[in-house]
Amino acid sequence: MLEMASGGLLCIGAFFFFAGTLGLLRFPDVYCRLHALAKADNLGLGCLLLGLALQADSLAAALKLLLIWPLGLAASAGVSYAIARRADALGIAPWRRKDP
């Protein structure tokens, strides 16, 4: 039961990483790509860590895995804002849809 839940979470996590990469490939500008990477990859990491924590040997080991998630979130939040701001300062105009 636990193993199935864990395996499921690993697959969901892998899917979100895949979606992040897909967004990186398909989205038209750096701002949209940041949306894809920051949000999808972090959710993927969260699922992965939860899945592995479910089958950890002890409570402490599980908590240690889960401790990684907020760190990753803080990193993505700070770095993605820094990149967006820098792109804006460089004068990179956001992509707009042609046919509204």
Binding site: F15, F16, A19, G20, L22, G23, R26, F27, P28, D29, Y31, C32, H35, A36, K39, A40, N42, L43, G44, G46, L73, P94, W95, R96, R97, P100
Partner: peptide, 21 residues
């Protein structure tokens, strides 16, 4: 953040016609 990840993943699957930035 779960909702945000799911939403952007869905947009990535649909491609750029899902966007209106």
């Amino acid at each position: 953040s779960v909702r945000g990840g799911a939403q952007v993943a869905w947009m990535a699957l649909r491609g750029r016609q899902a966007l209106q930035p």
